[in-house]
């Protein structure tokens, strides 16, 4: 792709998010409304960088309890057990189901971590005003968006098990505090990805619109 593509902002135009009408922007004025529907007009997602940062920091914080605390309590006739994500992976690996262990590891540990780290990288690259490899960074962003929901795998597993296995004294499964934290991490990274405006990847720092 050529970086010399003409963008709406260069033309001084903007589409309204509310009604879709193409509007001429007024020079020198920051806050504008659509003449037709009155919605606020944005050239780029508003406060994209700081919002992304906020979500990212929140997910960083919650990522720790998500991995340290038990995600699931299994109670059966013969005792109860609490598993963290890591101990579940280790258990699966030790019991010979290495493929399952791999899936859980990728979905529950690798993907969320990769997502947070790469999003951080993208935000930083925008803030530092990098313009090189815009294409690659955009592709990375697309992968991020696509893969995001899949990291909910663990949460799915837990919710399904909790719903299914409620045999009172015989066997019960309860979600642990990590399930909540983990779910929050996944949701927050999704928000972070949504808050991030990939168009910023293509623009030099001085031309950022808010």
């Amino acid at each position: 792709m050529s970086e010399s593509a003409v963008t709406a902002s260069q033309m001084g135009l903007c589409t309204c998010h509310g009604c879709g009408s193409l509007t001429q922007l007024l020079a020198g004025i920051h806050d504008m409304r659509c003449r037709r529907c009155g919605a606020a007009l944005h050239l780029r997602k508003p406060n994209s960088i700081s919002r992304t940062w906020a979500f990212l920091i929140a997910s960083y914080i919650l990522y720790i309890p998500a991995n340290v605390l038990p995600i699931m309590h299994t109670g059966s006739l013969f005792g109860s057990q609490s598993d963290t994500i890591i101990s579940g992976v280790v258990y699966l690996w030790n019991s010979g189901s290495w493929h399952l262990a791999l899936i859980v590891f990728i979905a529950s540990i690798l993907v969320p971590l990769a997502k947070i780290l790469s999003l951080t990288f993208l935000v930083l690259s925008v803030q530092l005003g990098w313009t090189e490899h815009a294409m690659e960074r955009t592709k990375l962003y697309r992968v991020l968006e696509f893969v995001g929901p899949w990291s909910m795998l663990d949460v799915y597993v837990v919710t399904i098990l909790v719903a299914l296995v409620q045999l009172k004294s015989l066997a019960t499964i309860q979600p642990g505090p990590a399930a909540l934290a983990f779910g929050a991490v996944v949701v927050l990274t999704m928000f972070a990805a949504m808050a991030f405006d990939p168009r910023l990847l293509w623009e030099p720092k001085e031309r950022h619109y808010v």
Binding site: C14, T23, Q24, D31, L41, R51, I61, A184
Partner: peptide, 27 residues
């Protein structure tokens, strides 16, 4: 059509930053 200029209303600190604060508190 041209955009309509509106009065500047600078909502000082963005509400979104409440989220990491809450997360930090909870964590």
């Amino acid at each position: 059509p041209t955009a309509v200029a509106v009065r500047k209303r600078r909502l000082a600190p963005q509400l979104v930053w409440l989220i990491p604060i809450v997360a930090a508190l909870v964590g």
